[in-house]
């Protein structure tokens, strides 16, 4: 597995895209730190970008990599290597290289601007951790889709739809329910609903850390009382981990049955 992982990382490092992705984050964070000296504000903007863009890039990269390396994968499958090892190697390879681009692209400006001594280090670390989680989650989901659908165009379509669901449609339904059931106590529902969507969960984790909780009034106080504690952080990080584990489990069960 390590060999395949190594190979796919080399492969991705040779390709232009991870550099483009890296340079994009580098320029974005440099310009953010350059334009406003206010670190909190920069982190909020970065969060907006990371929470929306990381899943999208992860999804597209995952699907794209699967389909473009399909022939080579089939060649590998002919060798006496376990299927799960091949695909896990590829999956971890993509996720790692994307995470690397993200961490370096955002981290280098942060270090250069000498912000390691500022109080924002914790928020910033959380931002990176959340970004890494989102990478792993969405690449896993994308691989699931690509494994299930042989048609490339259809696969891309479903992958984009999946991203759209988590980033936009879920929130639309969520908002609709909140408005419709306005007369009922909604705090527990809100808590569970935010847990079930990795993008929402990441967004709220960071928002609450940046002290937007006061804005959220009663619901905010309730969410803060849960997410603000160490227990809440552990629960939400394990919820994010579940979002990685479950797709991987499905992937391996799918692999066992799939006819290549």
């Amino acid at each position: 597995m390590l060999k395949i992982l190594k190979y796919s990382i080399y492969d991705l490092l040779r390709s232009r895209w991870s550099y483009v992705y890296f340079i994009f984050y580098l320029m974005l964070s440099f310009s953010l730190f350059f334009l406003n000296s206010d670190i909190d504000k920069a982190i909020i903007t970065l969060m907006n970008v990371i929470v929306v863009l990381t899943p999208l890039i992860g999804t597209i990269f995952g699907v794209m990599y699967y389909y473009s390396s399909k022939e080579f994968t089939e060649l590998l499958l002919a060798q006496p290597i376990k299927r799960s090892k091949i695909f896990m190697g590829q999956y971890i390879g993509i996720s790692l290289s994307l995470t690397l681009s993200l961490v370096l692209g955002v981290g280098i400006p942060f270090v250069i601007y000498g912000l390691f001594k500022s109080a924002a280090v914790f928020d910033f670390t959380l931002l990176l951790v959340v970004g890494a989680f989102l990478n792993f989650i969405f690449v896993a989901l994308a691989y699931n889709i690509a494994l299930s659908i042989n048609n490339k165009i259809k696969g891309f379509g479903y992958a984009i739809l999946m991203w759209l669901t988590f980033a936009v449609i879920y929130d639309a339904v969520f908002m609709g329910l909140l408005i419709h059931y306005n007369d009922y106590p909604l705090d527990k529902f809100t808590l569970i609903a935010t847990m079930l969507n990795p993008i929402d969960l990441s967004r709220i984790l960071i928002l609450l850390k940046l002290d937007a909780s006061a804005l959220l009034g009663y619901t905010g106080a309730f969410l803060q009382s849960f997410y603000g504690t160490n227990m809440g952080l552990i629960v939400s990080l394990s919820a994010l981990s579940m979002w990685i584990v479950l797709p991987i489990l499905r992937m391996s069960s799918k692999l066992k049955k799939k006819d290549f």
């Binding site: 980033a167 936009v168 929130d171 908002m175 306005n182 967004r203 009034g217 905010g220």
Partner: peptide
Amino acid sequence: YIVNQTPETLVLLRSLFVDI
């Protein structure tokens, strides 16, 4: 405006859907 009607919806602050 929506937050005024239903304060709970504030949890969606800075969501992409809200921007749209």
